[in-house]
Nucleic acid binder design. Structure first.
Length: 375
DNA sequence: TAAACGTGGCC
DNA sequence: TGGCCAAGTTT
């Protein structure tokens, strides 16, 4: 006589542990992404290209999957290997990264490729410690590459995992103070079999089921493991420390247009905001803007006409940029500046805020959105 | 430890 | 519309 099977054992997503239930769910509901190997291939022992995993992980830092996809495809097509990227010009990498944001990632991407090519013969280190020593690779990315590309049982903790675990355990400590507690909980869950898929399953669960707002608990493979769900308040977690208010800064941008339509550009300093990217000449960005500031900030004396105000929100402040334009006859670019032809503009390393400014002065000049505010 | 560091989508 | 959020790292 057989004993009755428990509800858990007869469930379609049955498994002995939360990790097993999650993997079973992942095999059926995983997202198909360009940098990812299908679970069927993983189960057969295949592993994804570490270069593709690394590239995707750097691009995905604080960035949505949808935003990353076209950039990932473009980079893989143009630089298919880490050696190819190491052989590239940093300037070309910055241009290809333009629009994706957090530009220190691009600079570190190039540095990392250089180091892997020169020091490791083009082969990525296969340990968390080795990976973390490389530029642009921190705790999360080192663990993610170690698990996904090399099958290491690393504790991969990103924003998704923080949310999933804080709900599973109904963690009352607010982020970021709760990070050590969450890391410990994840480390205890990681299976030795398919740790990379476990990590990606946790992230897929957070991205598609255990979402910040209105989570689809009814579809969750871990519903019976979830304390927050049991409390009837999954959305209450994770608790977060209050965020600082964003100050407003103001400045002026100067769009100089040559008779043939070329626009005057210059390079920003390597470090700091939009480091190493290109821009139209701008004033200093300060709390207040007066006429004297504008006059002294113009790249050369001219009749600068008002082209309105562009607003842009950065991570830690809001910017209101007054845009001015002038048209000049053929003239030499001032020192440190260059003229960029209309056809060359979209290939420049222009961050989105600068495309907005140019767009305000020359509608249709770039592919950027207008982003106009009343002037 | 906290601040700096981009952008676009969503409600 | 404005705040929140997204596969974080560096200093």
């Amino acid at each position: 006589m057989t004993r009755p099977m428990t509800a858990e054992r007869t469930s379609a997503s049955a498994g002995g542990t939360p990790a097993a239930r999650l993997i079973t769910w992942y095999d059926r509901h995983h997202r198909r992404l360009p940098w990812r190997l299908a679970p069927e291939a993983i189960r057969q022992g295949q592993r994804p290209d570490p270069y593709a995993v690394w590239l995707s992980e750097i691009m995905l830092q604080q960035t949505t999957v949808g935003a990353v996809k076209p950039y990932f495809d473009a980079f893989m097509a143009r630089w298919p290997t880490v050696e190819a990227l190491a052989a590239a010009e940093t300037e070309d990498v910055m241009k290809a990264w333009a629009g994706l944001g957090y530009y220190s990632r691009a600079r570190n991407l190039k540095k990392c490729a250089d180091e892997v090519a020169a020091r490791y013969g083009g082969v990525f280190p296969d340990t968390e410690a080795g990976l973390k020593a490389l530029p642009g690779i921190g705790d999360y990315t080192a663990a993610a590459i170690a698990a996904i590309a090399f099958g290491r049982p690393a504790a991969v903790v990103d924003g998704n995992v923080e949310r999933v675990v804080s709900r599973l355990d109904a963690i009352e400590t607010p982020l970021p103070a709760a990070k050590p507690e969450i890391r410990k909980a994840v480390a205890a869950m990681v299976p030795t079999d398919r740790p990379g898929d476990f990590a990606q399953a946790m992230m897929d669960l957070g991205a598609t089921i255990c979402t910040p707002r209105r989570p689809s608990c009814i579809l969750c493979p871990l519903i019976e493991d979830c304390t927050a769900q049991r409390l009837g308040a999954p959305e209450r977690f994770p608790l977060k420390a209050p965020k600082a208010e964003k100050p407003v800064r103001k400045g002026a941008a100067f769009v100089a247009i040559r008779e043939d339509g070329a626009v005057l550009l210059r390079r920003r300093p390597e470090k700091g905001l939009l480091g190493g990217m290109s821009e139209v000449p701008t004033s200093h960005w300060t709390a207040r803007l007066d006429g004297a500031n504008e006059a002294t900030a113009a790249p050369f004396p001219a009749h600068w006409s008002d082209s309105g105000v562009v607003t842009h929100v950065f991570t830690h402040f809001k910017l209101r940029l007054s845009v001015f334009r002038t048209t000049v006859a053929d003239m030499a670019a001032p020192s440190g500046h260059w003229w960029s032809a209309p056809t060359a503009l979209d290939g420049e390393a222009l961050p989105t805020v600068m495309k907005k400014a140019i767009e305000a002065a020359i509608p249709g000049a770039t592919k950027a959105k207008r982003g106009m505010a009343g002037k």
